[in-house]
């Protein structure tokens, strides 16, 4: 994204659920993508729990190159913006791994999205993406995940798991996997669900004495924990989970 580029339109597939009106005002102020290069054999990680907000709009744009045998883990929280977007392009070398864990927590009229483009350019690379959304009010939460497997990228193993929980019938969740596979010996698994809190479980918890708001909190906490379970660093995980909990408190 750059001031020199024209504003995207809804016809651009990766912007079709975006809040372009909100984007328009801040578009000229945005820099291009932040480039991250993970050298061959190295491991790197990044956590984003606060979006850089300008005029209510928070955009994170990353362009990551993961070298041969290298590993990059990204864990993100899409919260607290009128329009928030975390956009990642990851290009994987031979035997590299890309891990994404993300939670989208929105309410009111927020539009929050995580948009990934994972390019398996070389053989034997793996990627795993887990996104959990909790949406209340009239919020829209979207995950668009494009996976591109090049002709030579045999033995690619790419997985996406996307689940959304709607707290109100007026909220919207979009989950859109997009696979472009040119190699023939690959594994690409993707699953997406949209649901509501399990009413039976809520009654069961109430019958043990849990007030509804606490029962809901426990269930949502467990639901979004999936997004961060892949984090090795316990203190980093606790930090992002506590930010997520804080955001959950404001949802209902």
């Amino acid at each position: 994204m750059s001031a020199l580029l024209p504003l995207p339109t809804k016809r651009d597939e990766s912007w079709r659920y975006a809040d372009l009106k909100a984007l328009e005002a801040v578009w000229p102020k945005l820099d291009g993508p932040e480039k991250i290069a993970v050298a061959a054999g190295e491991s790197a990680s990044r956590q984003i729990s606060v979006l850089p907000i300008i005029d209510g709009v928070g955009i994170v744009d990353l362009d990551v190159t993961i070298g041969d045998g290298a590993n990059f883990a990204l864990h993100v929280l899409a919260v607290a913006a009128d329009y928030g977007r975390i956009q990642v392009k990851a290009t994987l070398g031979k035997g590299a791994h890309f891990e994404l864990g993300g939670a989208i927590l929105g309410s009111g009229t927020q539009t929050l999205e995580i948009v990934t483009e994972t390019i398996h350019a070389e053989p034997n690379a793996t990627s795993n993406q887990v996104v959990r959304s909790v949406l209340a009010g009239k919020a829209t939460g979207s995950f668009l995940g494009k996976i591109n497997v090049a002709r030579d990228a045999q033995k690619t193993d790419a997985a996406q798991s996307v689940k959304a929980m709607l707290l109100d019938r007026t909220a919207t969740a979009n989950a859109k996997p997009e696979l472009e596979i040119f190699a023939d010996d690959v594994k690409c698994a993707h699953g997406a669900t949209v649901g509501e809190l399990d009413k039976q479980a809520l009654f069961y918890m109430a019958a043990r004495g849990l007030p509804p708001e606490l029962a809901q909190k426990l269930m949502l906490q467990a639901f979004i924990a999936d997004a961060f379970v892949s984090m090795d660093d316990d203190s980093a995980r606790e930090a992002i989970e506590s930010k997520a909990l804080e955001a959950l408190e404001h949802l209902s």
């Binding site: 399990d198 039976q200 479980a201 009654f203 069961y204 918890m205 426990l218 269930m219 906490q221 467990a222 639901f223 924990a225 999936d226």
Partner: peptide
């Protein structure tokens, strides 16, 4: 029929 609560 006791209810399952994943993750809790």
């Amino acid at each position: 029929y006791p209810v399952e609560i994943p993750g809790v």
